[in-house]
Design a protein around this nucleic acid. Structure first.
Lengths: 343, 343
DNA sequence: ATTATTTATGCAATCGATTGCACAACTAAC
DNA sequence: GTTAGTTGTGCAATCGATTGCATAAATAAT
């Protein structure tokens, strides 16, 4: 069985004394082929261990059955879960997923999109980088009539399908929950509010306070990179300034974790002295002590949705591509870090 | 600039009154092309915004510049980090990575490999599933002369390049460390020892004990699925049976985490009463209380290595593919959960 | 029995880049 | 000035599957 050479439709054709056209049609289920030939073709194909050459097919048909997927960082739970979600849907439809990461570098993002186009992907699913300067590369994708789906980090500047979570709602839920637990001086950790999602979280935080008759206090709002170290620094500042606060709502689990460490190191109790809520539902949040209340973004479902929007666009007429914005409702995952009142 | 139609080498050729052959050669840096034509071609290519059609190129040359990468689960830190590592090397060489996950289902594994072959990938990088029944699909890959690199979970049944970590050494280091901290009754959490890596960890554990004059005690060895719940169950059993133990070395961080919870719930102190060491260096381990000592497998580096082995094989003569087994030395990451003696 | 229609298949071009071979034009050697 | 060698391009086939158009054969309609 040293079957090094791949069998092609021509091999099947030769064996059956028909042409490659017939074989191709038979394999594709073209109704203009008689039952008997179809069966013979399928039988011979099996015998010869035929596997279609998707490259040849792609060249002729223009469809590669490939989706280019661009994320900032592959090995971040949120993103890898979205990749997982996309892969599940794509695979079930016999599509494959090429992944690339931008590492938040704008140039990488441009290169990745170009590489995808060169590989002739059938479309792209992407999350915009933090340092994206313009959207020309994405516009090219659209101009070529290829489906483009943006998730999580999107922009109104591109007329294309999007999946986001309701960041406002997530933040509103989180803040309201803290208020319901009796907290009134709630700090907020955020980042430069250029990016929509953080803007929205901030807005949700402020609105929840106002809706409950609490005046927002900018002295309690800290901006940084939302990493663990930032959370530590913010918490230390709060403590040093003897700022009066009884809760922290952080726009990221990592910063929340940093704050948790500092608060505990200073002998304060969580949630009694300081209640804590994060955002992301990173896997580690259930393992902290106490476990961290956070906002679940349902990344796998987000991946499913992104893939479904992708195939919707792919299957719609080129002239009237269906663009749709799907907003996923987040869920507040209540754990011990914020639970002052026993339910 | 409604440049919907892609420009091809023929467009460039027409504009310059040469043939496509010349353009192709000029673009590929073939030395038989005069400097003047080459410059003209490159200039025109830029002007017309030419991008090579990799599909056409792939069909003719037989190289798709695609690597198929198969992992059990995309959204597990260890695996997504390896994907990241592979992607970094691949991208720098203008190769792209298609990812698929098996979810530990053997059939999925077979299908993914078949799909990769249909997509005409230039080779495959894979980790074998837990439920793999035979290796025929991988053998097909090798028979076709394609590079195959296995990582983490490998098998001696396939003559191909492999990257693993020295699981024995990791376990030996971990156990020796516990002994150095004064522990003598060290429990071990493992799984059915069919899979090499767990066998090796068990062996490292036993040998470390023996080398330090401690008799291994099978009553302290627990087998399960190594999930958090398993760790909890094992720890509860240990406590209920009033088994005398002063440390646990778990072959997985998750099971270690479960044990940490149970031990603390029972009012015992870590590391004073029970010292704890895990394995994997999952991101959460640095966030537990106390932070968990564990074994770092350097997954990103493992990805780099896998990719390098892949390209070695790819660039070697088909007849004498270089197969190499690389063993990465793990590192014991010592954190508070095992640190009884201040250094 | 003749025409119209359906059914099943073949022909040949096409997708875009690559490449072995041929060949013209020019240079160098004797 | 004839032969040998070098240099730069072109020609045409090829990779494997797909598809519009043509056509032969079989069936239905008149």
């Amino acid at each position: 069985m040293e079957n090094t050479k791949k069998t092609t439709i021509h091999d099947i054709a030769a064996k059956l004394n028909v042409t490659a056209s017939t074989v191709s049609r038979a394999l594709k289920g073209n109704p203009r082929i008689s039952d008997s030939t179809r069966k013979a073709v399928l039988k011979t194909a099996r015998e010869l261990n035929y596997e279609p050459n998707q490259i040849a097919s792609a060249l002729r048909s223009g469809r590669t059955q490939l989706i280019g997927m661009l994320v900032p960082t592959i090995n971040r739970s949120f993103f890898s879960s979205i990749i997982r979600g996309v892969e599940e849907v794509a695979n079930s439809l016999d599509y494959r997923v090429i992944v690339s990461q931008s590492n938040e570098v704008f140039e990488n993002e441009e290169n990745a999109v170009r590489a995808f186009l060169n590989a002739r992907v059938d479309g792209i699913i992407a999350s915009i980088g933090k340092n994206t300067q313009h959207f020309d590369h994405y516009k090219q994708v659209l101009e070529r009539g290829l489906p483009l789906v943006l998730f999580d980090r999107t922009t109104p500047q591109l007329h294309t399908s999007q999946v986001v979570i309701d960041d406002y709602q997530g933040a509103y839920l989180a803040t309201s929950h803290l208020i319901a637990q009796g907290c009134v001086k709630i700090a907020h950790f955020t980042t430069e509010r250029k990016i929509d999602i953080y803007k929205e979280r901030y807005r949700g935080y402020v609105n929840a306070l106002e809706d409950h008759g609490i005046a927002p206090n900018e002295a309690l709002v800290f901006s940084g990179s939302l990493q663990l170290e930032d959370g530590r620094a913010h918490a230390e500042t709060l403590l040093q300034k003897k700022e009066n606060f009884d809760a922290i709502f952080s726009a990221s689990d990592y910063a929340a974790m940093g704050a948790m460490q500092v608060v505990r190191e200073n002998g304060l109790k969580i949630p009694e002295d300081v209640a804590l809520v994060g955002f992301l539902n990173e896997p580690f949040t259930s393992f902290t002590d106490p476990p961290l209340t956070t906002v679940n973004q349902f990344p796998i479902e987000m991946g499913h949705t992104a893939a479904n929007l992708f195939f919707n666009a792919l299957n719609s007429e080129k002239e009237k591509i269906v663009t749709k914005k799907t907003v996923i409702q987040p869920e507040l995952v209540i754990r011990a870090s914020s639970l002052k009142k026993k339910p």
